[in-house]
Amino acid sequence: MDKLLKVSPSPHVHGGDSVSRNMLRVIVALLPAYAVALYSFGVGALVVSLTAMFSCVLFEYLIQRFLLKGKFTINNYSALLTGLLLSFNLPSNLPWWIVVIGSVVAIGIGKMCFGGLGNNPFNPALVGRVFLLFSFPVQMTTWPRPLGWASSYLDAETMATPLSLLKAGKLEQMPDALNMFLLDTPGSLGEISALALLIGGIYLLITKVITWHIPVSILLTVTAFAGILYGVDATTYPLPHIHLLSGGMMLGAIFMATDYVTSPMTHKGMLIYGFFIGVITMVIRVWGVYPEGMSFAILIMNAFTPIINKYVKPKRFGRVVKK
């Protein structure tokens, strides 16, 4: 035989899963919400999202090529996904240069300075978003009215989000739940339609990109927490479904908290992680200064993920003997 036989340890077959396939599936799962965002916010959404995606990919490439001098990694779509997720966390009337700064922070500080995908302790998109929230508090908290379709995206008509209404105690001005569920809520690009996000989440569950543990644990915790508050004082606190449908709850629970790299590896760990995200989010929403606490909660729990991984072990085979 002229060809040499290959030799390697077993197993000799692979299931076909790959990093890029997972990333691509998450991007596909975000498409319904993206479509809603484009419909609601028009050209603003397009500018913000394209800027974020393009600059994330560009900065990952530049850092990889000139600073790390390592393997070419933008072909695994993770930078594209980070860009898309970052834009989902931004208002559609954000000037493009702020978006670029957010991308630099997300990719550079959030991901590449730890050694690239897999080594980052915090969710890169959220690092970018929170950085922008602290640096540009005004721009980051003026939300354009959905379906406003302003001619120039920067001077769109703005209005308050359900959560800031909640914070201000203006329960009577809240949009009705059906609107929040479908599309008509002001907020970041990716926050407006719980339905579109849920469709994406179901797709991710079916394709086994994520497991149910984290989203269900977060949403149940929030429901229970809000339920208890409502039970205590129904005049100040809204019904639980308002909390579930408003702000970044769905986006965070389904797409941000389930990020592979920064979430625990065991199912038990995921439940614990989700529970605390739910609790921290509600504490910030109800008693904190900020109207929305999802991104902070996720980042805080990201920091606890290594500890959860260290102490929450999977159930080992043969440790419990049944006689």
């Binding site: 040499l4 036989l5 290959k6 030799v7 390697s8 340890p9």
Partner: peptide, 13 residues
């Protein structure tokens, strides 16, 4: 060479 190795890069393995 009579064959080519395709496993983890470690002599021990």
């Amino acid at each position: 060479k009579t064959n080519s190795y395709d496993g983890a890069k470690s002599c021990a393995i």
